[in-house]
Amino acid sequence: MEIKTVSIIGLGALGILFGHHLSKKLAKEDLRIIADKNRITKYENNYLYCNDERCNFNYVTPEDICTPADLVIFAVKFNNLKESIEAVKNHIGDKTIILSLLNGITSEELIGQTYGMEKMLYSVAQGMDAVKVGNKLTYDHMGMICFGERKPGILTEKVTVVADFFKGTEVPFEAETDMYKRLWGKFMLNVGVNQTVAIYESNYGEIQIEGEARDTMISAMREVISLSEEEGINLTEEDLDYWLKVLDKLSPNGKPSMRQDLEAKRYSEVDLFAGTVLELGKKYDVPTPVNKKLYERIKYLESMY
């Protein structure tokens, strides 16, 4: 199998970043951006820009009849996942491979319940420092997409097919042999970084240096390590150090998505981060006081909208 057609749903930071890159590597008709009619009208009237380049996307609505895509990429926020699963149905065929770039540790299973887990590859997007303001996205580091099967130690044909496609289109990637642990590692990073930068109303720069904010971030991440042991994932301090090194390479002026959401007075993914931590803490009787404090603070900020 060879990937020739790609459909992307979601034009937040990741959708624009990777969509714009792929639009310069594929024929226009081979890359489809799925959006409802109102969004398409908005995009076509105002345009979208990526590092000052105007995006040239091929938009299709969920109702448009089309041939199934070889690869479908979910790049929506978790709050929009349910409607997005329904919206891609015309793009899913027997041999379609699905990647979810969503934060958290649950989206693959939710998508797989509808389309079959055999179509899913677990994935995370990491290392990018993209900031989206209005219709303009800027970034210094593109980052990469890491993907693989949930079962550790194997590189299946699906993994090889996606790796070959990303290699051919110059998308930075890493084919991971222990992907579920990587997924939990990214979850740990998001729990620390997104929420800490949000409540301190700052940027990556503040948590790249020693101080109260960085201490808060690391404490929140260590609560995820404790929960991972209960789940049999077994993250370690070595994993924490790996993700801190990823963080330290980002532009100090960059901001994670949750900080951008709160600035724009949008509801955030706090239930996906601290909310999940609190649920698992209750399930396993593991204390999670730092995440409880982060959760309460973010919910308070959102209540002020």
Rank of each mutant, 00 (worst) to 15 (best):
Asp248Phe: 14
Gly134Pro: 07
Val131Lys: 06
Leu17Cys: 03
Ile65Phe: 07
Asn51Asp: 13
Ser303Val: 05
Ile33Tyr: 00
Lys95Phe: 13
Thr138His: 13
Arg297Ser: 09
Ile105Leu: 07
Ser123Gln: 01
Asp261Ile: 01
Glu223Tyr: 08
Lys42Pro: 02
Lys25Gln: 15
Phe18Ile: 12
Asn190Leu: 02
Glu109Gly: 09
Tyr305Met: 12
Val60Ala: 09
Glu269Gln: 05
Pro252Ile: 04
Met188Val: 08
Leu11Ile: 07
Arg214Ser: 04
Ser7Ala: 15
Gly15Arg: 05
Val286His: 01
Pro256Ser: 02
Ile73Thr: 01
Met258Glu: 06
Lys181Ser: 14
Phe74Gly: 04
Ile85Cys: 05
Ile111Cys: 02
Gly281Val: 04
Glu63Asp: 15
Asp64Arg: 09
Arg32Lys: 15
Lys249Tyr: 09
Arg266Ser: 11
Lys249Arg: 09
Val277Asp: 03
Ser219Thr: 14
Gly153Asp: 03
Asp94Val: 13
Ile199Lys: 10
Val290Glu: 00
Ala264Met: 07
Gln260Leu: 15
Val131Trp: 04
Arg266Gln: 14
Ile225Thr: 07
Ser257Gly: 02
Ala27Asn: 15
Met221Ser: 09
Phe173Arg: 03
Ser268Ile: 03
Ile65His: 09
Gly185Ser: 09
Lys283Gly: 03
Glu302Thr: 06
Ile73Phe: 00
Pro152Leu: 02
Ile3Glu: 04
Ser202Gln: 07
Tyr59Thr: 04
Tyr300Gln: 15
Glu176Tyr: 10
Thr169Val: 12
Leu99Tyr: 12
Glu86Met: 04
Tyr115Ala: 02
Val72Trp: 01
Ser226Ala: 15
Glu176Asn: 12
Ser7Trp: 02
Arg266Lys: 15
Asn194Ile: 00
Thr67Phe: 13
Glu83Ala: 13
Lys158Asp: 12
Asp248Glu: 14
Lys167Asn: 14
Asn51Pro: 05
Glu230Met: 15
Leu244Gln: 11
Pro62Thr: 08
Glu206Asp: 11
Leu11Arg: 12
Tyr284Arg: 11
Pro152Ile: 06
Tyr295Thr: 06
Thr177Phe: 04
Met217Tyr: 10
Val162Thr: 09
Leu99Ile: 15
Gly205Ala: 00
Lys37Ser: 12
Phe74Glu: 01
Gly10Arg: 00
Glu210Trp: 09
Thr160Gly: 11
Met179Ala: 10
Phe74His: 03
Val270Gly: 02
Gln208Lys: 09
Lys292His: 12
Gly15Gln: 11
Arg182Trp: 10
Thr288Lys: 11
Lys245Tyr: 08
Leu272Asp: 10
Lys28Thr: 06
Leu262Gly: 08
Ile111Pro: 00
Leu294Cys: 03
Tyr204Val: 10
Pro252Asn: 00
Gly12Ile: 11
Gly211Phe: 07
Ser107Ile: 05
Tyr305Gln: 13
Tyr47Arg: 14
Asp215Ser: 13
Lys181Ala: 05
Tyr59Val: 06
Tyr267His: 14
Leu26Arg: 12
Gly15Asn: 00
Val171His: 06
Cys146Tyr: 08
Phe187His: 07
Tyr49Glu: 04
Lys249Asn: 13
Arg222Ala: 10
Phe166Ile: 06
Asp52Lys: 11
Ala213Asn: 08
Asp271Tyr: 01
Ala198Asp: 06
Asp239Pro: 10
Glu206Leu: 14
Val159Asp: 06
Ile145Lys: 03
Ile3Ala: 01
Ile225Gly: 05
Gly143Ala: 08
Gly116Ile: 04
Val246Cys: 03
Ile105Ser: 07
Leu22Asp: 03
Ala27Phe: 10
Asn45Lys: 14
